[in-house]
Write a protein that binds this DNA or RNA. Sequence first.
RNA 1: GGGGGUGUAGCUCAGCUGGUAGAGCAUCGCACUUUUAAUGCGAGGGUCCAGGGUUCGACUCCCUGCGCCCCCA
Length: 521
Amino acid sequence: MQPVDKYEQDRRAKMAKLAELGIDPFGQRFPDRQYIGQVRALWKDEYGEEGPAVRVAGRVMARRDMGRVTFFDIQDWTGRIQLFVGKKQVGEQGWAIAKLVDLGDFLGCDGRLGKTKTGELTVFATALHFLTKSLRTPPAKWHGLRDVELRYRQRYLDLIYNPESLRTALRRTRIVTKIREFLAERGFVEVETPTLHTIAGGAAARPFITHHNALDIDLYLRIALELHLKRLLVGGIERVYELGRVFRNEGISTKHNPEFTMLEVYQAYADYTDMMELTESLICALLDMLAEDGLPLERSARGGWLLRFGDLQLDMTRPWPRRPYADLFREHVGVNVDDVAALKRKAREIDFDPEGKHPDVIVNELFEELVEPKLTGPVFVVDYPASLCPLTRRKRTNPRWAERFELFLAGMEIANAYSELNDPLLQEELFRKQLEGLPEEESMARMDEDFVLALKTGMPPAGGLGIGIDRLVMVLLNQPSIRDVILFPLLRPRRLQYDVSTVGQVAEERSEQRAERHGGS
RNA sequence: GGGGGUGUAGCUCAGCUGGUAGAGCAUCGCACUUUUAAUGCGAGGGUCCAGGGUUCGACUCCCUGCGCCCCCA
């Protein structure tokens, strides 16, 4: 049971008084109310004292008592507006309600739109409707809710009292909506594939394990969407995507949440160059939408959008640079990818033990360590070492490399795309071949016989793309932590408050002990 | 896993070299029909994250643990 503190007791008392007045403290439907944002837009200076009649509702964010008048500021998800509530204007019942209103309660109000002496747009109330009691004290009105832990654990408080948090949350949903619209316009269909997998394939990550009782088998929460969507390509669904949650049982950081949202798109008769065009077009469409939505974006000298992320500035003007993996490697590591002796030397410099490891495992480590952080971007890193890409088509001109790109923004991997491997015999071989020195959870090579069977049926040549939606939103909305773009990030569970029954006791014992000690000295 | 920071009233934060915890907002009471971080006067409110130690005495010093944040692996 939650403790009832003195503040809650005050509010419960007011709740009871409302009930005595015949008012339900938890309200009822309030039809035909107008959004505050729309009401604010109604105002014209010609109205003078007599504006239109309006009906608004929202949460009480501030109250200012002036004797027989009270000003309330109420807030809905479109904005805030001031109410002028005069004793004479709202009558005995209305005034009785006004007296019992606390910060955080929900009020409905009928009135006329007008301006006060000081020019503040105001609803001059003719009737007040009590809609819901809040039993908790709100945070400080000026400083808001700063404590990050509270903001994450009780996100609803964050959304109410930090307007930028609500704005970010709503912008994220608009981004997701826009992605669906964009893909629909290009003829893609959205599907849903299983979350519970018998083989955790399609990416290199450690899975969450769960158990199905009736079948008595262990199952994995999916770590990627890839293998089911490709089965659908085999089945003739030629342009397909899924936007869904994937789960990786790994560390938590400003860039990692154990569950996150992934978009995967597959297009038959295309390859990774088509996916590059798709990625660029999609992200630029999102930027256009956000700019229209009021996100403060500047134009770069080259005509595209200029995106700020922390101290970084990303010039999003198309086309974005395409840089071969091997070139970037040579540039930032100072070593050729095929110079094994030099690779080992470099590996030791960054405290990575290269012994017994496949040269490309070393290359991968050096790339992640020394190259990726430098990739402010936007930049498409193209053509990855084939040995690291068991699901990707090899380059026809040189099988040393795979037709894969990753998009980097602000040093973060945002997108990953392939020309999809559709050769079932090579696929089967690659599933079997575990690279030396690569721990299993870091390998994508996990035998999936059913998937190989699907490929044997024939999968059309195709391009595939994965985008990490949370990270993309971080970059687009300039949010430094993934927890700021996920409404309920994973935190270690914690008891909210202590057991009430012991509180008074402990406090009493404490002060007695204290008195004894000091008294005795 | 390692390092750094942090945890004090509902919220935002002070609290020095150890001596029974402070402010602002919020709450409660009074006044006020054009305020807007309203104002004026008055009042109440604390497991100082938890457990142990040192001490006559610990929010403060020491040890252990826990939550959260940041950096590194």
